[in-house]
């Protein structure tokens, strides 16, 4: 069972509300890097004791078409999703076009303890999973009482 979907607490609910505010009330100030709703690809972010786990839901893209970089604690995922049909195709008539088409770019601020040398990225079934290790010194330690 995947835990990338549930288990968010009240704080996350408030956070989500905060993120939706700009689209509900345009003109309200918000964080510079806060994502507008409906940005492509949607991302889920979680942490474990050893790593920061990021999943970008970006189906229909070749693994080598992603451009992933980390610079000054900012993870950037960019690329392009090409249209399925060429526009010159007169034989077909479109009825619905909801799927994202075009270039995309998403930036994620990483916490201080993220180690840019320990990054793994994997693309499977349309999900880009990025795992970033934490620095040794920041890992939780149990302290034994003498």
């Amino acid at each position: 069972m995947s835990h990338f979907y549930f288990g968010t607490d009240l704080f996350n609910e408030l956070n989500r509300l905060h993120q939706q505010m700009p689209s509900l009330f345009p003109g309200t100030p918000s964080s510079l890097r806060s994502a507008h709703l409906g940005a492509f690809p949607p991302v889920n972010i979680g942490t474990t004791d050893d790593s920061i786990e990021i999943v970008a839901f970006a189906p229909g893209i070749k693994p080598d078409e992603f451009d992933i970089s980390i610079d000054k604690g900012l993870l950037t995922i960019s690329g392009e999703r090409k249209p399925i049909l060429s526009e010159s195709d007169t034989e077909t008539r479109p009825y619905a076009q909801e799927r994202f088409v075009g270039t995309f770019r998403r930036a994620i601020e990483l916490p201080e303890n993220a180690d840019p040398d320990k990054v793994q990225a994997r693309y499977a079934n349309g999900c880009l999973s990025i795992s970033i290790g934490k620095r040794e010194s920041s890992k939780p330690r149990a302290i034994t009482v003498q």
Partner: peptide, 15 residues
């Protein structure tokens, strides 16, 4: 989506 054990979700756009 395969995830490591002990994952704590912090931000979710797909819920």
């Amino acid at each position: 989506v395969p995830t490591p054990a002990g994952l704590h979700l912090q931000h979710a756009e797909i819920r």
